[in-house]
Simulated scan of single mutants.
Amino acid sequence: MTSSNALGFTQIVDPHEITDELKQTLVDCWTEVSNAGGAAGFPFPPVDAVEVTAVLDRIIEKLAPTASRLLVALAHGTVAGWLNIRCDPHPPVAHWGTIHHVQTRLGVRGQGVGAALMSRVREVARDEMGLEQLHLAARGGVGLEEFYGRLGWKEIGRWPGALRLASDDDRDEVLMMLSPL
């Protein structure tokens, strides 16, 4: 098991911080995870680098310290996983953020990278972004509710059958919240 002490984390809060090499590594990770059936934003594999790059570019364009960040987990200097945390400065909702595109490389699955990434994002949200709670939506039927539940997240609702992955495969979208941070 990878100790969270063996992991490093980096935050990207400005589009200019993304190097070509890092961008390509994030694209490679997302493509790998999606094509293995991961619930990280592309429900219909296979995807290719062109498709993933277009979506990642839109995320990168919106990076800003107070609105959107990438949190990247590094194992031995290599990207092991990443996620996007976003918040809205509009006063009624400025106290919470949303987690998107949580993913870990296939080669590090089961080694605690995902749990460490989620623990670190909790600290970032609370200590650096001043948030009080986090939200996420998870694809039902793949064990994500249990994974997040072990980390303190609570299911707060479901949209039954909201995700149609195939004509005979409707999945719930599971709404989850972590509060207090």
Rank of each mutant, 00 (worst) to 15 (best):
residue 110 G to C: 03
residue 113 V to W: 03
residue 46 P to C: 12
residue 52 V to P: 01
residue 146 E to V: 10
residue 124 V to T: 12
residue 123 E to Q: 13
residue 105 R to F: 05
residue 63 L to R: 01
residue 101 H to L: 13
residue 157 G to Q: 14
residue 29 C to R: 03
residue 52 V to T: 15
residue 22 L to C: 06
residue 65 P to C: 08
residue 33 V to W: 00
residue 10 T to M: 13
residue 89 P to L: 12
residue 72 V to L: 09
residue 79 V to K: 09
residue 65 P to I: 06
residue 40 A to C: 15
residue 157 G to K: 10
residue 50 V to F: 12
residue 103 Q to R: 07
residue 156 I to K: 08
residue 47 V to L: 11
residue 89 P to W: 13
residue 153 W to A: 01
residue 174 V to L: 10
residue 102 V to N: 02
residue 46 P to V: 10
residue 59 I to A: 09
residue 181 L to W: 02
residue 160 P to I: 02
residue 39 A to L: 07
residue 115 A to Y: 02
residue 79 V to C: 11
residue 107 G to L: 05
residue 88 D to M: 13
residue 78 T to R: 15
residue 107 G to Y: 08
residue 131 L to E: 00
residue 106 L to W: 03
residue 45 P to V: 13
residue 28 D to S: 11
residue 151 L to V: 06
residue 176 M to P: 03
residue 65 P to H: 04
residue 70 L to D: 01
residue 44 F to P: 03
residue 141 G to K: 06
residue 90 H to I: 09
residue 129 M to V: 07
residue 41 G to Y: 09
residue 135 H to D: 11
residue 123 E to A: 05
residue 90 H to G: 03
residue 42 F to S: 05
residue 36 A to I: 01
residue 39 A to Q: 07
residue 131 L to Y: 02
residue 10 T to H: 06
residue 47 V to S: 03
residue 78 T to D: 06
residue 46 P to D: 09
residue 105 R to G: 00
residue 123 E to K: 04
residue 64 A to W: 11
residue 180 P to L: 04
residue 66 T to A: 12
residue 157 G to W: 14
residue 85 I to W: 00
residue 181 L to I: 08
residue 10 T to R: 15
residue 50 V to E: 15
residue 151 L to M: 14
residue 24 Q to L: 12
residue 105 R to D: 03
residue 13 V to K: 13
residue 47 V to A: 12
residue 123 E to I: 07
residue 167 S to E: 15
residue 55 V to P: 01
residue 97 G to N: 01
residue 65 P to G: 10
